[in-house]
Design a protein around this nucleic acid. Structure first.
Lengths: 211, 211
DNA sequence: ACTGTTAAGTTTACACCGTTAAGTTACTTA
DNA sequence: TAAGTAACTTAACGGTGTAAACTTAACAGT
């Protein structure tokens, strides 16, 4: 019994160390530059051993994908305390951009990369809690904004998606190196300035605080 | 002399046919799924021949990248006739999204993919005309909007980039399959609805037409 | 007309990649 | 102690981008 326990524990340890190696390499080199063989070398096992613990490369990165959402939710956590929903919406916008810039490879994997998306579709309606939680932080805030008279007449679901799109836009352009078209002196801190401008736009939409 | 001409012509023909094969494969399978060997097979040459005409894989796709911007400018062409700059801005927004949805692989290559960006940086200050032209369509329109009293107090450059970000957001989420988080009944035509909402937001920013 | 040179294309090869099948240990249980 | 099995490795397949060496054919100059 005790032996079986130890074995179980060791299996989990190895699985965890595969994931740790994958994470380290991934964060400093990105998805495509991280190979199964790299990961194996790092933990001093043969490449094929990894397949005893993960179905394929996507399966590993799907695990990191989920980690990313846990991390994103940490950025959102404290914001639930902001009482005014419109203020909270603004805070979410900023936190989202901060998350993206501070965790570029995670962001890439979560929202840009093609990669572990098939894995997500396979595991289908198996909850996917953390992703829903992150999106819910936005949608409930939007709903509350509408209740308080902001964004009159707009569909909450489309609006939620629109807000997401707007912030995703800068993050994706920044992370995938499309900001360089802009003059050099503007480049520094551009993403944050765009974020501020989005917030500014949201505010301008209602001349003064409604209700 | 005539012989040299024929040879020159044939070289250009082969280069063009490489590009044509690359384009066909690329449009139906995407960048990563299109290999040098595929392209070579399609034109019935050995893979290494391609390296006599293009520096590397990125060099081929950089050519397609440029093609994409020519195509985008075609979508923008007729819009220059819209006299009112704010109306033109709205039209550009819609045209941009239409371009993205109708030319997904091109859009991906131009604005999402990591791939031929290094080639772009190498060819550095060698004009990059079509890209500038597309961005200029937006920036001059924004400038004119400001002249007519729209977007008071906003920085035109940051604003241009912000507008681009907003529309890029939907396009990127759509093309990279991140819209599926949304309930099924909302999914159909979501990108266009988001586009309309962005336009709606721009309009709401100034209660009534300024000036 | 013969010969040396060069351009154009191919063959071969290198170093990777993800992944599978077959083989080898080393430990555990009967 | 023998058998069985879980854990891991070796070898291999078919793919990738790319470079070096080789072949072939056409041309230019004497």
């Amino acid at each position: 019994m005790a032996i079986a326990n130890r074995k179980e524990r060791q299996k989990e340890e190895l699985k965890a160390s595969i994931l740790e190696a994958a994470r380290t390499l991934f964060i400093e080199r990105g998805y495509e530059e991280t190979s199964i063989r790299n990961i194996a070398e790092r933990i001093e096992y043969s490449p094929t051993t990894i397949y005893l613990y993960f179905k394929d490369k996507d399966d590993i990165f799907y695990a990191l994908h989920r980690e990313g959402f846990v991390l994103l939710n940490q950025y959102f956590r404290s914001l639930q305390e902001v009482e005014d929903p419109f203020e909270r919406l603004k805070a979410i916008t900023k936190a989202y951009i901060r998350f993206a810039l501070e965790n570029r490879e995670y962001y890439d994997l979560m929202f840009i990369s093609r990669s572990p998306m098939s894995a997500l579709e396979d595991s289908d309606n198996e909850k996917w809690e953390e992703g829903d939680r992150a999106f819910a932080a936005l949608t409930t805030t939007i709903h509350q904004c509408l209740e308080r008279g902001y964004f009159k007449g707009m569909d909450p679901q489309v609006l939620s998606f629109t807000c997401w799109s707007m912030v995703h836009g800068i993050c994706a352009l920044e992370i995938r190196g499309r900001c360089k078209v802009v003059p050099d002196e503007l480049l520094d801190g551009l993403s944050n300035r765009v974020g501020m401008m989005i917030v500014d736009m949201l505010e301008r939409m209602h001349g003064k605080k409604p209700v």
